[in-house]
Each structure stands twice: as C-alpha cells, then as structure tokens.
C-alpha cells in the first residue's frame, strides 16, 4: 500500500450521503465514502448491490437525487470538468470501438482529454508497453481476446494520468490468468499512489492489506482493512465475512454458537 497523503489534502474521491433511485426503486441510500490516494479499495457487493449505479453517478452519467461527489476536492455538480479530468474509469460494459484499432481507440481517448501529437504517442507507447500490448497497436479491437480488450480499456483509463481510477467488475468474463494479471496491474498502480476503487462481487480479487467496503442493497454494510474485517466478524475467510454481511450465510461465530459445522 502506498503512503497516505497529508491530513490537509482532500480525499481523492469523496462521496457524501449519496442517494439515487430509479423511479420508485431505491438504488443507493445515503452512501458515504472517502477514497484515499495509494489505497486499493475493493467495493464488494453482490449483483444488484448498487455498485454500477454508484459508478454511473461518479462518471456523471446520472445525477444523484441527494448527496455530493467530490474528486480531489472538486464538486462534480458545480465543477464537473475539473472533477472528471481527475477520473479514469473502466466500466463493466465494454466501451471500446470494435471497428477501430487499439491505437485509434487510444488516440481518440487521448484527444478527448486534450492530449495529441508526440505527447499522446509517448504516453500511449509507455502504457502499451507496461500492459504488454505494444504489438497489438495496429490490431482492430474486434480481433482481440476479452482479456486483451480489458487491458486496452485499462490503458485508456490511464492515458490522462488520473489520480483516481475506478474499475467496475473489470474482470467479468475473463479466464483466471487474465483476471490475475489485471488485478496485479491495478494493485501495482495503487502502490504507485493512484486511488483505486475496484468494484467486484468476487472476493478472491481482494488481497491482504486491501481496504474492503461491502455494499448491499444500496447501502454500505462494512468498511475496514481486509484482515480487520474478518477479525471483526470472527470469520475465517473474507468469503465468509462477505456472506455474513449480505445475509447469505451466518458468520462462523454464529454458526459455532448454534452448533453448526463449517
């Protein structure tokens, strides 16, 4: 985990009492969360917990019905451009243009952020090199495997060097080696000082030392370092702690008290 910023620095991402509903159906209910630089924060929640809705609010695709979002101290409602410039997002749904090449997709994204010419070329080359995609630059995205496409999306999210990186179920549909590779890459980014918010329902993507925020039915149910969370719930594994928090299974302590085996 990277060094924490001084106390006076605003959180990299701050969600203040965030609520949102689809018509009558509440999707988020008063979510409060601060994401710090250099920390890999896993937002763990089952399908339908509200993770994607939360990401859509942060990406300004929806407007919250209540609450506030700040990115690096900039209010997303009143200073959207300053806030958005500090965000890199990999959405759950693929967002690459399949008919363009890897290079064309990345140049397009770089230009949207005002980066062109030699600066764009250098940054694209460095990212493709880091993510071992250098040889695929001229390939159409349509020809790439799911894992490679995800890495291209990760490269695109990092093009403008955002201090905050959000990934929503970024490994959905990938095989184990591809998943491991992307989880490794993103942990490495957190170690370099990037604030990472990693939404997932797969507990094996969380590593020791990661911060874990458990979300269920639009509200935050727990927020602690991975090991501390297991200790709090007296759970032998994060899987059990997670299941207990979302009501899928009783915690180990409760099972022991009830005389039920593991």
């Amino acid at each position: 985990m990277g060094a924490h910023p001084p106390a006076s620095t605003p959180p990299a991402l701050s969600l203040e009492a965030l609520s949102f509903s689809y018509g009558d159906r509440f999707a988020l209910d008063g979510v409060c969360l601060d994401i710090e630089a250099g920390v890999f924060t896993a937002l763990l929640g089952p399908n339908g917990a509200g993770k994607t809705t939360l990401f859509s609010l942060i990406a300004r695709l929806f407007r919250p019905s209540a609450g506030r979002i700040r990115v690096g101290g900039h209010d997303l409602g009143s200073q959207p451009n300053r806030a958005l410039a500090r965000l890199g997002i990999v959405f759950q749904q693929p967002t690459l243009d399949l008919d363009l090449t890897v290079g064309q997709n990345l140049r397009y994204a770089a230009r949207l952020h005002g980066i062109a010419g030699g600066r764009a070329r250098a940054r694209i080359a460095a990212l493709l090199d880091r993510l071992e995609l250098g040889e695929r630059q001229r390939d159409k995205v349509r020809e790439l495997s799911g894992g490679l496409r995800r890495r291209v999306e990760l490269a695109r999210a990092l093009l403008h060097e955002p201090p905050v990186l959000l990934l929503d179920e970024a490994t959905v549909g990938l095989d184990v080696p591809s998943r491991t590779r992307i989880v490794d890459d993103v942990h490495a980014l957190a170690a370099r000082g990037v604030a990472v918010l990693w939404a997932t329902h797969l507990v094996d993507e969380v590593r020791a030392g990661d911060r874990v925020v458990v979300m269920h039915r639009g509200a935050i149910r727990a927020d602690a370092e991975c090991g501390a969370l297991m200790r709090q719930l007296n759970a032998p594994s994060l899987t059990e702690a997670f299941a207990a928090l979302i009501g899928a299974a009783p915690p180990a302590a409760a099972r022991a008290a009830a005389g039920v085996g593991p």
């Binding site: 990406a59 451009n81 958005l84 949207l112 952020h113």
Partner: peptide, 13 residues
Amino acid sequence: MGSMKILLMTPLP
C-alpha cells in the same frame, strides 16, 4: 455498445 460513456465523460461541457 457503451462507447458513448467515454464521450460523455470527457472533461468539457
């Protein structure tokens, strides 16, 4: 296809 999100997230009005 989702690529509209990338355009709408651009830090410009």
